Computed example of a mutant assay.
Amino acid sequence: MSAAETSAAPATVLLYSHRPEVRDAVRTAVGRRPAADVGPITWLECSTGDEVVAAVDAGGVDLCILDGEAQPTGGLALTRQLEVEVADRPAVCVLIARQPDRWLAHWSRAEATLSLPVDPLVAPGAVADLLRAAAARSTVGR
């Protein structure tokens, strides 16, 4: 193992969807370690919007991956809610089913989007980029 692999801090990724098969697909596509320079991921799964808000309020979440198609509260609405209500919210990646919905993700202030079904060749890179940015923000904030 290289120094980068051993020194990368673990990350907590909150994964929200009311559908277990979507959560499974994201976890499988991203894996436990999306890049060698990104620490291992601990997945925190949520199936309701209230669970997401409570988990983010409790702290310790490095990244949120929210299903834009979730019911009854979609990931786009939750992203906007977190943007307004949480002073130092974690970065958010929204899962979208239609590319035209990217403007909604922009409106909600999501840092990134991933298309459904999740592409295992794209997802790890997007998650790794967001976790690197989160690590850089936390280093600057010290």
Rank of each mutant, 00 (worst) to 15 (best):
Gly75Met: 01
Pro10Trp: 04
Met1His: 15
Gly74Ile: 06
Trp43Gly: 03
Ala105Lys: 09
Glu51Val: 04
Ala135His: 12
Pro120Glu: 04
Asp101Met: 13
Gly74Ser: 08
Glu51Met: 10
Pro90Glu: 05
Gly39Ser: 08
Ala8Phe: 01
Leu131Met: 04
Ala133Glu: 13
Pro100Asn: 10
Trp107Ile: 03
Asp50Met: 12
Val127Gln: 02
Ala35His: 09
Glu51Ser: 11
His106Phe: 12
His106Arg: 15
Thr48Ser: 13
Val30Gly: 02
Ala55Asp: 07
Thr139Ala: 15
Ala70Lys: 11
Ser17Cys: 02
Ala8Pro: 04
Ala133Cys: 07
His106Glu: 13
Gly49Ile: 07
Gly60Val: 15
Asp62Ile: 04
Ser108Phe: 08
Trp43Cys: 07
Leu78Ser: 09
Leu82Arg: 03
Leu114Phe: 00
Val26His: 00
Asp57Gln: 15
Leu66Asn: 02
Cys46Ala: 15
Val22Pro: 02
Gly31Asn: 02
Gly39Asp: 06
Gly39Thr: 09
Arg19Asp: 11
His18Gly: 15
Ala97Gly: 14
Thr79Phe: 08
Ala29Gly: 01
Thr139Lys: 09
Pro117Ala: 04
Leu44Phe: 06
Val56Asn: 05
Ser2Pro: 06
Ser17Pro: 02
Thr42Cys: 04
Ala105Cys: 10
Tyr16Leu: 05
Val52Trp: 04
Thr79Gln: 08
Val53Gln: 05
Leu76Ile: 10
Gly74Val: 04
Ala133Leu: 14
His106Trp: 13
Leu82Met: 09
Ala128His: 02
Asp50Asn: 14
Thr113Glu: 04
Arg80Ala: 11
Val53Ile: 15
Ser115Leu: 06
Ala105Val: 13
Ala25Thr: 01
Ile41Phe: 03
Val127Arg: 00
Ala9Trp: 05
Leu66Pro: 01
Leu121His: 13
Leu104Asp: 09
Ala3Met: 15
Ala136Thr: 14
Arg33Val: 03
Ile96Leu: 15
Glu69Ala: 13
Val53Lys: 07
Thr6Gln: 14
Gly49Gln: 07
Ala25Leu: 02
Pro40Met: 10
Ala112Phe: 13
Ser17Lys: 00
Asp37Gly: 08
Ser2Asp: 14
Ala70Thr: 12
Trp103Leu: 12
Glu69Leu: 07
Ala70His: 10
Ile96Met: 02
Arg142Phe: 10
Leu130Gln: 04
Ala25Asn: 01
Val86Gln: 11
Gln99Ala: 12
Ala135Trp: 05
Gly49Met: 09
Val26Ser: 01
Pro90Gln: 06
Arg89Trp: 02
Thr48Leu: 11
Pro10Tyr: 03
Gly74Pro: 06
Ser2Trp: 01
Pro120Ser: 06
Leu78Val: 08
Val26Trp: 00
Asp24Ile: 08
Asp119Met: 04
Thr6Lys: 14
Ser47Gln: 14
Val92Ile: 05
Ala136Lys: 12
Cys93Gly: 00
Leu82Ser: 07
Ala91Ser: 12
Gly125Trp: 05
Val94Ile: 03
His106Ala: 13
